[in-house]
Design a protein around this nucleic acid. Structure first.
Lengths: 255, 255
DNA sequence: GTGGAGGTTGCACGTTTGTGCACGTTTACG
DNA sequence: CGTAAACGTGCACAAACGTGCAACCTCCAC
């Protein structure tokens, strides 16, 4: 079915994941024959995918991870995408760390994907992010107060800013309005910009989660240079040229 | 029915469990024929599932374990009651007023029941209350920050207290742990008590919404005398003696 | 061009896991 | 009480697995 001509390892993993989504399972031996590579390589691919939480490794092949939906059946594909991005981003954080999580639907998906029992502390200006982790085992939640902006879904005024400046975090997940491999992060609103700058400043590493539209979008206020971004999480079908451009800029790209 | 072509061992167990969920029982011989494997393998699968507590092993096959949900949902009539109480309480507020809304599931129901297009300002320490009104037309929302207490579902520390003291409101809806016609409001936690006292102090009128269990409950910390409570919202089937006692204490009772 | 770093691949090795069969034991039922 | 089906256990075998290693590729600095 597929062109076994010459498949790049990256591309191969992508195709495997796609088939996994479609059929729910894959058999290592079949894939090896199809791609004309040894089963060893397939096993390595499967191991990689499993380590990213995208599939569950089993004897003889792999099954789709229970949390990864089998390719948008009735749910919004957009929500599906964000869930996946959230899962990938969540895999970056380690035991006992402190996370700044900005407002935004993608970041809410991230919050839902964060693992329990890791002693994580979530600091957020968005009530729905707080709701997503509140009450789950192994989470501390700190809410940043202030007047909520209904367009953003979070607090951003000067009062919020002051509270944020009293905190230091390991990771920071700013909402992304637009991102560019040369210029960095962009935002629409000025107060929002100041808030994002503050939390980026106060954090060790910055993770930008960008849905495909954000990679092509533009916005009015420059928020941070690309050098301030340590990790970038994008969809798996993003063009190689683009991801390579980010990698060249020193950003660790995850998909 | 199923493709007996090639089924991975783990996948097979998964399918068995699924069928178990749907039909409540499975027969080993049938499964063996269906998956084209020996009954020995099926028995091993069943034994594995049983050792994980997912099914109960019986002679000839297996039954669904009592703990495992057999597919389906349960409805909560408590939610229905709280919705009704919330509707009644919501009818008390007028145009353009400022409301302090404490954390708690009953108050979340109230927030959902608040009418749109009234120019209301909601001040809350609970993220789920904020989510309930955020983005709806005619609402301003102010979030009180601080460390969230997972048992309460809201922020209560000293930082939250300070923010609350900077605000004056028309109405205040403290979460009710216990209430008594003679002694007033009671709470379980000390910090929680201080927060409720602060918002009651800062508000013109205080509305207590009490589910039936709260009318009979007791708690450790005295929060406010009954004279501080202006309105009480209770279920329609509350005893007359009790509602009369509250009315005698100067409380407007609504049901 | 040259060489080294980093990544990918296939192979060999020993190990783990799943399978079916044989055997003796337990269970259900007439 | 007797029989047949279902069961558990031990065993042999094959398939799948992880790991270490050497070969190979590409990219980039020198």
């Amino acid at each position: 079915m597929n062109a076994p001509e010459s498949t790049l390892p990256r591309e191969r993993q992508h195709i495997i994941l796609e088939r996994l989504r479609r059929e729910g399972k894959v058999v290592a031996a079949d894939l090896a024959q199809e791609f004309r590579v040894s089963e060893d390589s397939i096993r390595r691919d499967l191991r990689d995918l499993a380590s990213q939480g995208l599939c569950r490794r089993v004897y003889g092949g792999a099954l789709l991870a229970p949390h990864v939906a089998p390719l948008g059946e009735r749910h919004n594909e957009r929500a599906e995408l964000k869930r996946n991005l959230g899962r990938v981003a969540a895999s970056l954080v380690g035991e006992g760390q402190i996370l700044f999580i900005d407002a935004g639907s993608t970041n809410t998906a991230l919050a839902k994907a964060l693992p329990d029992h890791r002693g994580l502390t979530v600091v957020t200006n968005a009530p729905d992010v707080a709701v997503a982790v509140l009450g789950r085992p192994g989470f501390d939640v700190v809410l940043l107060g202030g007047k909520l902006d209904p367009r953003i879904g979070g607090a951003i005024g000067s009062r919020t800013l002051r509270q944020a400046q009293d905190i230091r975090a390991d990771f920071c997940f700013p909402g992304v309005c637009a991102i560019d491999p040369r210029t960095g992060l962009w935002t629409i609103d000025e107060e929002e910009t100041m808030f994002k700058q503050a939390i980026i400043e106060a954090s060790g590493e910055t993770v930008a989660i960008a849905t495909p539209d954000k990679l092509r979008a533009s916005a009015t206020h420059h928020t941070a240079p690309i050098s301030a971004v340590t990790h970038l999480v994008v969809a798996a079908d993003t063009e190689w040229e683009l991801t390579d451009a980010y990698r060249a800029a020193g950003v660790a790209v995850h998909l």
